[in-house]
Design a protein around this nucleic acid. Sequence first.
DNA 1: TACTTAAATTGAACCGGTTCAATTGGATGC
DNA 2: GCATCCAATTGAACCGGTTCAATTTAAGTA
Lengths: 343, 343
Amino acid sequence: MMPTIRDVARHARVSVGTVSNVLNGSSLVKDETRQRVMAAIETLGYHPTAAARSLSTQRTNTIGMIRSEIRLQGNLIETDPMVLDLIDGITSEAINSSIGLTFWAIPAGQREMELYRRLVTSRQIDGLILFALREKDPRVAYLQEQAFPFVIFGRFESMEGDNWIDVDGAAGIEAAVRHLAELGHRRIAYLSPPHEQSLTRLRWQGFVRGMEEMNLSIDPALIYEGDFSEKSGQLGTHYFLDQPNPPTAIFCNNDRMAFGAMRAIQARGLTVGSDVSVVGFDDISLARYSNPPLTTLNQPIHDIGKALFNLLIKLINREPTDLLGGKLLKPELVIRQSTGRPR
Amino acid sequence: MMPTIRDVARHARVSVGTVSNVLNGSSLVKDETRQRVMAAIETLGYHPTAAARSLSTQRTNTIGMIRSEIRLQGNLIETDPMVLDLIDGITSEAINSSIGLTFWAIPAGQREMELYRRLVTSRQIDGLILFALREKDPRVAYLQEQAFPFVIFGRFESMEGDNWIDVDGAAGIEAAVRHLAELGHRRIAYLSPPHEQSLTRLRWQGFVRGMEEMNLSIDPALIYEGDFSEKSGQLGTHYFLDQPNPPTAIFCNNDRMAFGAMRAIQARGLTVGSDVSVVGFDDISLARYSNPPLTTLNQPIHDIGKALFNLLIKLINREPTDLLGGKLLKPELVIRQSTGRPR
DNA sequence: TACTTAAATTGAACCGGTTCAATTGGATGC
DNA sequence: GCATCCAATTGAACCGGTTCAATTTAAGTA
């Protein structure tokens, strides 16, 4: 049997209240008493039981993150390496405050909301991190209604509240289009994210803005909706290159689709960067090691994870967030060899 | 205030014991009573509080996984995409039993063991999943001593116990070497995992076995210790190609190093698959979309995640595991275009 | 109808912490 | 010497579930 706080109290000849005060760093305890209690804790190898503490403090010291898969074309979207970087960022910050990150995976839909409801009402977690936001996301509506602490990586078009951090995808895409236009590209294809995603419309606006700015016309035949997978990048690119008037550049909304696109171009005996240029989004660690290395939009995902964590903790503690209407970061265009002057 | 079990009891005009029985599906409750309790639960929107339940059942319905980073050459090893697939597998199985997977990140070393000790003694989790096993891993010794339920993805050379699942890396590498030798390669370089890892020695044995089997000699100049990063794959490959008598094929112990290797080969104006062949390990989803697509060893990582989860649950419940001395899976050699006949 | 047995229900005790009103003890002031 | 004050300590009540011995209810039997 593990020692309890009462065992420690008995051993140190003090009351449980005093032990509790020592554990929680109360200044009320005399130094000599504290020493004695510490010694007892040490010799007994005592650690407070998480569940008991949670029960009385109403805190679990755990935050949650749920991978809500969307099925497209009958296939599960696999999780992006990007998400792993996000987890990296969150956990590397969480370790300092002894807070754990709990993970669930569930398909979007009926059962998804059940899971959220269960987590919230059973108070298994103190707060939630949401990502891959959908338009009219039912999760956001529910959590807002319940006044449950949560932060979002992403945002809606018009977003109230200060609980989100996002990368300005539109501005990034605008910069990418400008880069391509300056290289001399006039026919630029657009490999879109799935339409349910809330970022899809925002990013599209950036593309339109960029094209208008550079006086380029948008050809509806050069738009293809992907699902973030390499496969869909490949399919979309073949579709583009089958057009009577194919593009000389393809903008892809993530790196994985860009890898698929490059593969498709090469499979046709064409050269990436001269015959067809490719731009990605995310700058996952592989992007600089692909062949050719990928021009892409870098987002400081590790730092975003850290920031999301710190923001969430503030919300949980009901401290002011010193954010007004979220936080928007600029992605940086990293130019590598997948883009070049068209033939 | 959230409703408690006593509120439900009052509302349904039964005792708390009966409500508890209904919640836990006891067969003792009369059907009519059950209906009444269910109705009360529904109208009050009641969900049992996780902490209270944990306190009395001594179960948290949470399992843990800790990313223990090893610092090599002053750099953090970033987590492999492979780990994400593992998480995918675990969580997709865990959702069915309402069990969460909690994540921590901590550098290997002093503080690492503190974290493990805290998690075990504070009973924040019911069990642990270990991976990236090191030789003489202190975590294994501690958990064994504490009789804390845990499973391992990986194994030691001589491993007692039935709580591990591993891929037979040695057999895989043997097959890879055979494949290369059959293509006509005689000088095969070996890009090793970091020496601390417990899989390093096992995999090396596979390489030696394969080379001996094919009557090839091992050149010490064609061995390089990497750290699983693309960067180290690049560095190792440049080192190999700088040798007076360079290799015609390179075996890399993971796909990320293989990508780095291919990049280095191409940076020298050489062609992967004809000038130098490259083999990877893992078959991450990008492997089939690289340029050229990567010949690699596929491990069913998603299924391994599921199996690890189910094994751990059995250990937690002290059920028989019907495994005798762990479970060893054969990786499958997937031949793509990064390997070919040497010039 | 009375008696036995099985099924259903009850509720106090328990899990192991935190909290806070009440109490103790020692120092200070007059 | 006694009252006052404050720092330190105490321990019962509470958080919200589960458990199980004891009790009530219902069904079956003679």
